[in-house]
């Protein structure tokens, strides 16, 4: 067995392969599980899935590239997923966006390593709290230029703390 995946992951993969009617159905949950563990899905993961679990690499790659939540690049510690859809646009997404960008640029000026990566995502399904953003798995609602910076600074302290 491959040493690429930890025993827990291997156990989870086996579980998912058994859980659904077809092995193929397990591709999405397995990729989620790998991403939760490693932050992103590497080429070697896809190849290992084919080698050890007979999930064809083309099928896995198709799924991996089709769905927007999967990452194929090394992530930063905090993945900022800012909704840029209708309601958020009306409710001040642009100000939030520029506030975030301003904050991220500070890292550049200071020459510090930025722990954030910013992504625009479609509607997060929380339009009553627009503008909304997901940081990793935590939802932040009713953002504006001020509170978003506070949230980012809070993350900052977490980042430097660890």
């Amino acid at each position: 067995m491959s040493s690429l995946f930890s025993p827990e992951i291997r156990q989870k993969i086996e579980h998912y392969l058994q859980r659904y009617e077809t092995r193929r159905s397990a591709i999405l949950p397995i990729l989620h599980c790998i991403q939760d563990e490693y932050g992103w899905v590497k080429e070697e993961h896809v190849l290992a899935l084919e080698e050890h679990y007979q999930l064809p690499r083309v099928q896995v790659e198709e799924v991996l590239t089709f769905y927007s939540m999967y990452r194929q690049q090394e992530p930063k510690q905090f993945r900022l997923m800012l909704c840029d859809n209708l309601v958020c646009t009306m409710m001040g997404y642009k100000e939030v966006d520029s506030a975030i960008r301003g904050h991220l640029q500070e890292y550049q000026h200071k020459g510090k390593d930025c722990p954030f990566s910013l992504e625009k995502v479609p509607c997060l399904g929380v339009c009553d709290g627009a503008p909304a953003m997901l940081i990793n798995k935590t939802r932040h609602l009713n953002l504006d230029a001020n509170n978003v910076v506070a949230i980012l600074k809070n993350c900052d302290t977490l980042a430097t703390g660890t």
Binding site: V46, P56, R57, V58, Q59, E61, E62, T65, F66
Partner: peptide, 19 residues
């Protein structure tokens, strides 16, 4: 043989083999 797939989506979709 299943060697070909369509990767990504929308008008960014690309036909090809794995890597």
């Amino acid at each position: 043989t299943g060697a070909l797939g369509i990767f990504a989506r929308g008008d960014r979709s690309i036909i090809g083999t794995y890597h």
